[in-house]
Structures are given as structure tokens and as C-alpha cells.
Design a protein around this nucleic acid. Structure first.
Lengths: 249, 249
DNA sequence: CGACATGTTGAACCTCATCAACCGACGTGG
DNA sequence: CCACGTCGGTTGATGAGGTTCAACATGTCG
């Protein structure tokens, strides 16, 4: 509110930040955070708004504060594949490369904490802890990318859709209202349209729709509107997703 | 040959190493390399030999000195997906995680330069440059994994096989005998069996075989035995692979 | 030479893509 | 206020691409 450059004020935004400790900034001590706080800037994006393109140089890095971003790649003839979804404390941007190879778009309304490219890279050089944290995050992203390769290459349409919903159901149980200890029926909003889900799962809109109705009629999930989903039968959703029960050989 | 612990001898193996400068060790100065040289140990693996499993803790990290390793993931019912291939200067192992989530197997005869897990992790802490190099490599791996997601999710069998062969053809032009400047006809050995190729491309053995014969009969590639491939028509192979010509909009 | 692994080829089948119609929600303008 | 177009989603009919099952070819090793 005031223009004072007093130390505690320089930290204000970060201290109030909802993702302060989960995001990459989490490793930084208060003193170090000041640097990031100074260069950071909040920005919001509407649904469908492009955040980064794959042709020209990305001018910033960012933390996702709220909302969902889809990372996509497109073939010359227009076929598209979503190669990753970014949720709340995730980091956006490809370090150490002039042009990031993906195309990032807001899947829902998105709030970002942005850092200008050059400033962030110099902060990165100064604080090895920050780079380390980013490294760990990248390793996790690599793991999930490879997990998804199994889905794309080897799972059936049924399993693909079940896996996707199962993933979101798991998320909703973790991040969902913490005052509800046992969640009997995981419930969540689909952050993607049918078209996006299709591009994420390597399917068509129609197959996605059919598989969802199938899950609905068998009673594994419940639809309330097109985007709101409840999972009364979490266990069988997991089984349909494959992958679970790490082999009962 | 001798047991002298003289400095230059401690460096002997690394100095003679074929991948000394391309591998992650490349960032280390001579003095620093001594540490790695002391803990490293050469090991060879036969075709089909398991290098790391996905259930128990990996006891070492390694650089690939020669040969090809396949990283795979398997579903409970046996369906398999190869999620990455490791070639000559690549690094093997998942840092900062107790159990690596993949299953690594020698696709050809493989020679590794192995580092015991704990020793390597302490070297990693001492030399931030080494971690940085590993980070960059991981980012590249993430890029290729996502590239492969497009292939798995959106390309046809024809395009998948063409992409795979195109990839190897490009590699052979880069790493191939450096005394031949212009390679008119890229030529290489397939490091994978048909079954492995199928698991890499998310197809069946039969489809892979059929697509390869199709490419052979159209004259885009030539087969000399089952594993040896020549690519007289590199350009159309690239076109069939899709992805090329980054959009002529 | 026979056994086994790897690769090829053929035929039938099935999953999923394609094409098309329809529905409901929403927003706009006459 | 209602007709209209649009957009996202669902459902149906049809067919192609890829899997499955099966037979056969080829090569290798004891």
C-alpha cells in the first residue's frame, strides 16, 4: 500500500503467498527471498489465453499460483498433443534454452507469479539451492512424462480415460478441503474441455465422451453438469486405470 | 598397469576415456576428475542383461561408454513401453530418489563407467558444476520424452516407424565416421529387435515389420539383413516422419 | 540336423476414428 | 422477448487402421 522500501515490506507479497513454501522459492531463506520478491510480478490469464509460444523466446519464468496450464505440441498438419498439465505450485518455463519447445495456454483462469527471464537466471546463478530445487522438480516432471508415455503407447481408451479421472480424483483428495479428513467420495471440477482431454490422452473428442458416459452408466463416476465429477467408486476407477496394484504375481 | 598412486596415473582411465568431454564429467577440471576417477569402475553388460530394476534400490549411477540401454516401464499384465533409449555419453540413474522408477536393460552389448551411489552423491554435493550439467541433461531428456509423447499419442504407424528410423539416421550422420564429410546414404545398425521397436513405438511386432517392408518396397530404405539399414532417400523419410518442415503456413 | 528365437506374411476381427446429426446453454441482435 | 448462431457435448452409423491369431521363413547354436 505504501511506497516505503523498508525490508519487511519488500517481503510482503511473498509472505502472503499461498504457495510460498511449496513452490521453488520454498528453499530460499527470508533474506534471499527479497531478491525474488523484487523482480516478481503477479499476472492473470483468462481461459484460452496463450502464455508462451513455441516459436519465439519466452520473456519470463513463473510459478503457478492458481489455475491450470496446458503444455502442448502441435504437428504441422494441426494434430495436437498435450504433453503436460501445470497445477498450483508448478514452475513454468524451460531454463537454459533460448526458446522453450512447448506452447503454454491457460486451461482455466490462471494466476502466475512471473519473473523476467534475465533477472531470474542471475538469481539462479547466485542461489544454488534454487537451481537444485528446480532440478528436483524437473526430475519429477520427467517421471510423470514417462508415466504418460505408457498411457499413450499401451493403454486402451477405457484405461486412458479412467487413468485421467483417477489422477484428478487423487489430486482432489490431497489438495481438497483439509477440514474434511476422510473423503468418502472424491469430487472435482474437470479443468479441461473434452477436446483438451482428447489431446491429453491421444484420443478423439467422441471416444472421450463415450468412455465417460460408460463410466457414468456403470456407476463408477457421477456427472453433475459436464465438468463436475464425483467418484463414488474410487477403487474400481483405480482398477480400470490399470497401473494400480503393482503386480500381484 | 602399475600400482603407483602417482597423480597422473590416478587420471589415467579418465584421460583415455572416449566420452571424457561429452559426458557429465566434461565440466570437471583435471584436479576434480581425480575424485571421480577414484570411485569409478568399468563394467560391461551382455545383450538382454538387466542393469537396473524398478523395484529395488539402484546401487550405482553410470555413464554409457558404448552400446545402447533401453529404459522401460511395464503394466501389471505385462504390456511394456520403452520410455527412453540411452546412447553413448548419456547418464544412467535417477538422482535424488531412492528407487529409480524404470527398468534398464542392455539393448546391445553395453559398456558403463559406474559410480557407487553414495560416493557419487557426495561428489555431486561438492561440485555444483556437475549437478548443473546433470540438470541440463535432464531437461533435454524431458524435451525428448515430450517429443515422444506426440509420436505415441498422435502419429500413425507409418509415421512412427519413419520417425524412429529417421532419428537413427540423423544420429548416424552425426556420430558416424568423421572422415566421411558428406554422407550421401546414412547407414546404421538397428540397436533394437522388432519387439523392442514395437515397445518403443507403442505398436505390435507385426505392424512394425509391415511398415518396414513398406518403406523397403517404396525404396525409401534398404535392408541388408534384418538389422542393417541404409537410407538412400533421407528426405522423404523425414517427410513421412511428419514433424519436419516446421509448418509452411 | 533339429530346436529355438526372430522376423515376415496372411486373414479375420475389433477398437477407435471419422462423418454426421442432434441437444442444450449461452449470448447477441432485431 | 424470442429467433438465431455458436460452442461444447452427446449419440449413432460406418469404416479404416492396427491388433490378434496363425502359418511360415530364416538364422543361429547346441
Amino acid at each position: 500500500m505504501s511506497a516505503s522500501s523498508d525490508f519487511s515490506l519488500d517481503m510482503g507479497r511473498c509472505n502472503a503467498c499461498a504457495i510460498r513454501h511449496q513452490a521453488v522459492c520454498g528453499v530460499l531463506r527470508d533474506g534471499e527471498l527479497v531478491r525474488l520478491n523484487q523482480i516478481s510480478r503477479r499476472r492473470t490469464f483468462d481461459v484460452g489465453q496463450v502464455i508462451m509460444t513455441d516459436d519465439d523466446r519466452a520473456e519470463f519464468f513463473a510459478n503457478v499460483v492458481s489455475g491450470v496450464i496446458k503444455l502442448a505440441k502441435t504437428l504441422p498438419d494441426g494434430r495436437q498433443q498435450i504433453v503436460g498439465l501445470l497445477f498450483a505450485p508448478d514452475f513454468v518455463g524451460r531454463a537454459y534454452s533460448e526458446n522453450n519447445p512447448y506452447f503454454a495456454e491457460a486451461a482455466t483462469e490462471v494466476e502466475l507469479c512471473c519473473f523476467p527471464r534475465d533477472s531470474f537466471e542471475s538469481v539462479l546463478k547466485e542461489y544454488p539451492g534454487l537451481e537444485h530445487r528446480l532440478f528436483e522438480r524437473t526430475l519429477d516432471e520427467l517421471d510423470s512424462a514417462r508415466e504418460w508415455m505408457v498411457l499413450l503407447g499401451r493403454k486402451t481408451a477405457q484405461e486412458k480415460v479412467a487413468s485421467f479421472l483417477f489422477l484428478l480424483a487423487k489430486r482432489s483428495r490431497l489438495t481438497g478441503c483439509p477440514h474434511v479428513t476422510a473423503t468418502p467420495t472424491p469430487t472435482f471440477e474437470l479443468p479441461l474441455t473434452r477436446a483438451d482431454i482428447a489431446d491429453y490422452l491421444g484420443l478423439t473428442i467422441e471416444t472421450v465422451s463415450r468412455q465417460i458416459t460408460k463410466l457414468k452408466t456403470t456407476g463408477v463416476i457421477k456427472l453433475l453438469g459436464t465438468q463436475h465429477i464425483a467418484v463414488p467408486d474410487f477403487a474400481t476407477l483405480g482398477e480400470l486405470a490399470g497401473q494400480e496394484h503393482p503386480a500381484i504375481h
